[in-house]
């Protein structure tokens, strides 16, 4: 097959369009998001991100005791339709039309819409790195959430042990050095609770640890006969 420098040039121009146009905007405006937000949505490569964003706003509203708005027709939701049409229909259509047009041209020159369609098609491939990164971020979030949840559960379980110890102290009249967590008869404890010290019959310190998170522990002061029965020390 004969190597055609012109064909090479056409593809080179196409790649330059994809790279240089956003770069030019970026240099002028000093930001990768060179378009206003509302226009930016139209060229979003990953439409489900918009839905997840709207669902997150709803989730925050519900968390704060407000009502969820749900999904309705708006600029942001309508942009999702445009994203699909732009990257999966208009881009390939222009690219194909330009390709077909050049075939009927005696010089086989590509029309302007070949470049435009080609640039849209190349940009459509950005779904691959964007989605890969998206999944990686979500997986990291899962790990962080799980750690956080585990810490919350440790705190809750320590409070449970603290209240039980306070009650034990009240009902038995006092707590002496022989007191052990096992005396509380608490079932299904998931973490390791230990009595740090018993300062007096009205003050003790209990620490919770978790073998899965060795760098994290919590210590609680328990004062059975005080108005503030429990307080976390760290």
């Amino acid at each position: 097959m004969k190597f055609s420098i012109r064909r090479f040039n056409e593809w080179l121009i196409l790649v330059m369009v994809v790279i240089l146009v956003p770069m030019a905007f970026t240099m002028v405006q000093d930001s990768w998001d060179f378009l206003p937000d509302n226009i930016n949505y139209l060229f979003n490569i990953h439409p489900t991100i918009v839905i997840i964003g709207l669902a997150t706003v709803d989730a925050i509203n519900i968390f704060g005791g407000g009502a969820a708005e749900g999904f309705s027709i708006s600029w942001r939701t309508a942009s999702i339709y445009f994203n699909v049409v732009f990257y999966l229909m208009i881009g390939p259509y222009l690219f194909y039309r330009g390709f077909k047009r050049s075939k009927s041209d005696p010089d086989r020159a590509k029309p302007w819409y070949w470049y435009l369609g080609g640039a849209i098609c190349i940009w459509a491939f950005m779904i691959i790195p964007v989605e890969t990164n998206h999944i990686r971020v979500f997986n990291n979030n899962d790990v962080m959430s799980e750690k956080s949840r585990e810490k919350d559960m440790m705190r809750s379980e320590l409070a449970e042990v603290g209240f039980a110890a306070a009650e034990y102290g009240i009902l038995k009249g006092d707590i002496n050095d022989s007191f052990k967590i096992e005396d509380l008869n608490l079932k299904d404890l998931k973490y390791i609770h230990a009595i740090d010290s018993i300062a007096s019959d009205s003050l003790m310190f209990i620490t919770v640890t978790n073998p899965d998170q060795p760098d994290y522990s919590l210590t609680m002061e328990v004062r059975p006969f005080n108005e503030g029965v429990l307080s976390i020390r760290n």
Binding site: A55, A59, I60, F125
Partner: peptide, 24 residues
Amino acid sequence: VVLFHAIAFAHDYGRKDYQKDLLL
């Protein structure tokens, strides 16, 4: 490209209530 759109849809649809459930 189609495959990655399908993955994006399936992944995010599977987590559509994730934020709400987590915050609740």
